[in-house]
Structure formats: structure tokens, C-alpha cells
Amino acid sequence: SFNTVDEWLEAIKMGQYKESFANAGFTSFDVVSQMMMEDILRVGVTLAGHQKKILNSIQVMRAQMN
């Protein structure tokens, strides 16, 4: 498990989005775990492969939080 959203993004090789997530207010796992595709688009993730990777990881995160 990760301590910060930045660490999580690095771990899934999506570190290039750290600033975008932070600027959009997605700075805690409570918020990130609620993200939908529209949120991912809003933070500027436009590549389908990256969207899928982030969404898949969020689903895993949700499962671990319950």
C-alpha cells in the first residue's frame, strides 16, 4: 500500500500525472478512490492505455479499502 497519491502514481508508472492530480484536488486516497472516467479525463489523462491503467488501479484500491 502507498502513503501518498504521488507514490501510488509512481508505482503504477503514471508519475507524469502527479501535478495534474494535485492541481485538480485529487490528493488523498479517499478522493482518488471515488474517481470515475470523467475525473480521469478532467485531470488530463487522454491516452486510453493510461486511463485503463489508472482506472484498474483505482478499482483495486477500492477493493482494498472495504
Rank of each mutant, 00 (worst) to 15 (best):
M35D: 00
M36G: 15
M37K: 08
R62K: 15
T46V: 12
M36C: 12
D39R: 01
F21Y: 02
M61F: 05
Q34S: 08
K13P: 01
G44Q: 03
K18P: 01
R62I: 11
G15N: 06
A48Q: 10
Q34Y: 07
S1I: 13
G49P: 14
V5N: 00
I54N: 00
H50G: 02
N56C: 14
S28K: 06
A48C: 09
G49W: 13
F2S: 07
N23H: 11
M36D: 15
T46M: 11
N66C: 12
N3M: 12
E10V: 08
G49Q: 15
G49E: 15
M14L: 10
G49L: 12
G15H: 08
V43C: 13
M37N: 05
A48I: 14
L9P: 00
K52T: 12
N66P: 08
L41Y: 08
K13Q: 14
G25S: 04
R62C: 09
M65N: 07
F29Y: 04
V60Y: 13
V60C: 14
G44L: 02
S1F: 14
M36T: 15
T46C: 07
F29D: 01
S1V: 14
A24H: 14
L47P: 07
D39N: 03
K52S: 11
G15E: 09
M36H: 14
N23Y: 08
V5D: 01
Q16I: 10
A48N: 09
S20A: 15
E10S: 07
M65V: 07
I40K: 00
M14H: 02
A22F: 13
Q34L: 11
I54D: 00
K53T: 15
G15Q: 07
F21D: 00
F2R: 06
F26N: 02
I54A: 01
M35A: 02
E38R: 09
D39T: 04
I58E: 01
Q34R: 10
W8T: 00
W8C: 03
M65T: 06
T27R: 09
G15L: 05
R62N: 14
S57W: 13
M65Y: 04
E10T: 08
R62Q: 10
M61Q: 05
E19V: 10
K52M: 14
M14V: 03
W8D: 00
Q64T: 08
F2Y: 14
A24Q: 09
K53Y: 13
R62P: 04
G49I: 12
I12Y: 03
Q64L: 11
L9Q: 03
N66V: 13
A63D: 15
L9D: 00
V45E: 01
K18Q: 06
H50D: 14
R42A: 14
S20E: 08
A24Y: 10
N56M: 13
M36A: 11
V43Q: 01
L55V: 05
D30I: 11
F21W: 03
E38H: 09
N3F: 09
V45S: 01
Q16D: 07
W8A: 00
E38K: 11
L55G: 03
L41T: 09
I58N: 01
T27M: 07
T46N: 10
M65P: 05
V43K: 00
M61K: 04
N3V: 10
D30A: 14
L9E: 01
I12M: 10
F29T: 04
V31E: 11
A24P: 01
M65Q: 09
R42Y: 09
S20M: 14
V32N: 00
E7P: 02
H50I: 03
L47G: 07
G49D: 15
Q16E: 11
N66W: 02
G49H: 15
E38M: 08
M36N: 14
L9H: 00
E10H: 07
T4F: 06
M36I: 13
S28G: 07
E38N: 08
L55D: 03
G44S: 03
L47H: 14
E19P: 07
R42I: 09
M37Y: 12
A48K: 13
S20W: 06
Q51K: 05
W8V: 00
D39F: 02
V32K: 00
Q51S: 06
D39I: 03
M14C: 07
I40A: 02
S33I: 14
R42C: 07
G25P: 01
A24L: 09
R42M: 10
M36R: 14
M65G: 08
I58V: 10
G25W: 03
E7Q: 09
A22Y: 14
F21A: 00
R42K: 13
F26C: 06
E7H: 07
D39W: 04
D30W: 11
S1D: 14
G44P: 05
L41N: 06
G15F: 05
S1L: 13
L9N: 00
G44T: 02
L41H: 08
I54W: 00
Q59R: 12
D39L: 03
N23P: 01
M35H: 01
F2K: 06
V45P: 01
A24D: 04
G15M: 05
F2E: 06
L55T: 04
S20Y: 07
S57I: 05
K52H: 11
T46G: 06
R62Y: 07
S20K: 13
V60S: 09
I54V: 04
K52L: 13
G25D: 04
M35E: 01
M36K: 15
A24G: 09
Q51T: 06
Q59K: 15
E38L: 06
T27D: 10
F26S: 02
M37L: 14
M61D: 04
T46Q: 11
L55N: 04
N56P: 01
I12G: 03
Q51M: 10
N3W: 10
I12F: 04
G25I: 02
E38Y: 08
Q34V: 09
I12C: 04
K13R: 11
